[in-house]
Each structure stands twice: as structure tokens, then as C-alpha cells.
Design a binder for these strands. Structure first.
Lengths: 161, 161
DNA sequence: GGCAACTGTAACTATATTGGTTACAGACGA
DNA sequence: TCGTCTGTAACCAATATAGTTACAGTTGCC
């Protein structure tokens, strides 16, 4: 499954901008919050700008901010901006055409995977960046990671950094 | 997103077994249909066996077959057997704890990603291997790949291989 | 018992994707 | 025109998946 954190980072970035309330943020500053390199952020900002979710300005006093109001940006918009594949992939190499299953499994799988993609999109379409910001507010420094499928890259936020 | 074809291959494998109707299949034979190496298949069969979806027998005249009836095996069972992460990942490195967004975005994201996972699981739980087999039957050699997010590894099944 | 046909598994390589880094050209405000 | 930004290319590192070879262990059959 997803081996990338692109969606999570993109949501983080846009949430920061909503939080900053129309003040342009520098990539360096965003990178500090995300805890990554500024170039990684700028690359992502380019994609988000192409999808008209943010606008950036070069030069001194430049930076990036949301292109629309936080309530007008859904997580589906973000997902489509930064992830270009469905949630599952098909076979790396096409199956054997001379096998009755192999020749047709792709068609059936595509139908199934479309159902999955649609379900995911329906969830994401119902959540806006504004929702994320308001869900953020009541959170004090609680313990993270209550996910069912625990991701290994969240090694507990330690006290010393 | 998913950069792996594990789920697709696993569904393919179990569909073959349902098609074979209780006759044990050799990994070599399965690999031919999937168009991959027999060891890749055997590795996957081990995982499927651990999840009690297939049973394998060593030795001459050995092979693998379904552990239950095709209508008792859902795509969710398969998904859980071969994919161990949710559909999205969080940040590679934990975000900055000193940022009001960074410190809490993980909690909110986990909630969202759980909603997504649940939606995916709901879809997969409603489809059995028997369903896949029956969806397979009417398919004659039609054109593949009608997915919205077109995967690049399905380069149209050409006539000459 | 001994052979041949299987599975299970380790060890290694190949390939792809993502993310991190350095470097620099171009934009722009002061 | 100088300093501060973005945009982007070029490269490296890390990780995950898949493919391959090799071989030990099981099992049916003669």
C-alpha cells in the first residue's frame, strides 16, 4: 500500500497555511514544521499550485498561501493533487493471456479497484481543510497513533528534539 | 499510494484455486498464470496459509488449494493477509513538536486515515472470491484497463507474448 | 529404501519510488 | 543592486517489492 507520505505532508502544509490565515509562508518555515527539507516542500507546493490549491510568490517577502478559503478545499482535492494512482495497483507484468483466469482477471480487478477508489474519494470529499483545523484546536498534546494499521514511521515523539 | 501488486496477485491466485475446484495447484503452474516466478508465488502462499485462506501440501503430488469455500473468502480477508499497512502513511519523520500544527496533525490525520481504511474495508468485505469467479465467467477477451487512475504497468495486452 | 516431485525458505540481485541534499537561475521588494 | 525568496535540475540515500538461484525437508510411488 501507500509507501509515501505525500498525502499526509500535503494536508499538513495546507493546514499550516489555513492556520496562518492568509499570511504567506516561506518554504523554509513550512519545512521546519513538517520536519523535512525545504526543497521537498517547494516541490510539493508546485504540484499544489498546479492544482490551484495554493499560490506562491517569488522574491523577497514571498511565500505561499491558500488559493481559496479553507472550507473550499477538500482532502479529495489534495489527494488528487499529490497522488496520481489508485490505492491499489494491478500486476507488474500482465498475466498469462492463455489462461482463462489470467486473461480476464484484470477486468474484474479494475472494477473492484474502482469501487475502492470511489469509496476512498467519497470519504475525502467530505472533509475540508477547515474541518482539519477545527479538529486540531481541541487537541492538546495527546498521545498519537491510534490507527488500526500502525505505521512504523511514527516512532513515538520523543522528548529530545 | 500502493506501489505493490500484492493484493492483485493474491486475488488472482485464490481465483485460480476456486476455478480449479479443489484440485491442488502447483506453485509453478500458478506462477505461469500470474506471469511471475514460482518463488514469489510460494512466498505469498505462505502468507495466505498463515491467514488460513489456503492449505498447502509438500511432496510429490503436492500443491495448494483453498482452505474454505470460495463464498467464504472475502477480498478483505485477502487484503488483510497480504497488505499490512493502511492505504496511506503518515510523515516519514514525526513533525515538529514545537509547532501547534505539527504537534497535533498526526492525531487528526490518523482519524481521517482510519475513516479511509474503514471505507476500503467495507467495500472489500462485500466481495467474495466466488463473486470474482462469477464476474470472470461472462468476460470474453475484452479490452482491459478502464480504471480512472490508469496504472502504468498494464501496457495493454499485446498480441505477441 | 530410494527416486522424483513438490513446498518452504534463505540469500542475493535488480528495479522503482520516495525523500533528502546541494546548487543555482530567476523573481522581486527595498 | 543587493538580499531574500521560489523553481528546478541533478544527484545520492533509503526502502520496498519483485525476481532469481539454491537447497533442505516432505511426500507419494516404484
Amino acid at each position: 500500500m501507500s509507501t509515501s507520505s505525500r498525502f499526509a505532508v500535503a494536508v499538513h502544509v495546507l493546514t499550516l497555511m489555513a492556520w496562518a490565515d492568509d499570511e504567506p509562508l516561506k518554504s523554509e518555515h513550512v519545512a521546519e514544521s513538517v520536519n523535512t527539507n525545504a526543497v521537498v516542500i517547494r516541490r510539493m507546493l508546485c504540484e499544489l499550485a498546479e492544482s490551484k490549491l495554493v499560490v506562491s510568490q517569488s522574491g523577497a517577502m514571498g511565500g505561499s498561501k491558500l488559493a481559496r478559503e479553507p472550507e473550499q478545499i477538500t482532502l479529495l482535492d489534495i489527494y488528487q493533487a499529490v497522488e496520481n494512482r489508485g490505492v491499489f495497483s494491478l500486476h507488474r507484468h500482465p498475466p498469462n493471456r492463455h489462461c482463462p483466469v489470467g486473461v480476464n482477471i484484470g477486468t474484474v480487478l479494475n472494477e473492484v479497484l474502482d469501487e475502492v477508489d470511489t469509496a476512498v474519494e467519497r470519504v475525502l470529499a467530505n472533509i475540508t481543510i477547515k474541518d482539519v483545523v477545527s479538529r486540531l484546536q481541541p487537541c492538546v498534546s495527546t498521545v498519537m497513533s491510534k490507527r488500526k494499521h500502525v505505521a512504523k514511521q511514527q516512532p513515538v515523539v520523543s522528548a529530545g528534539n
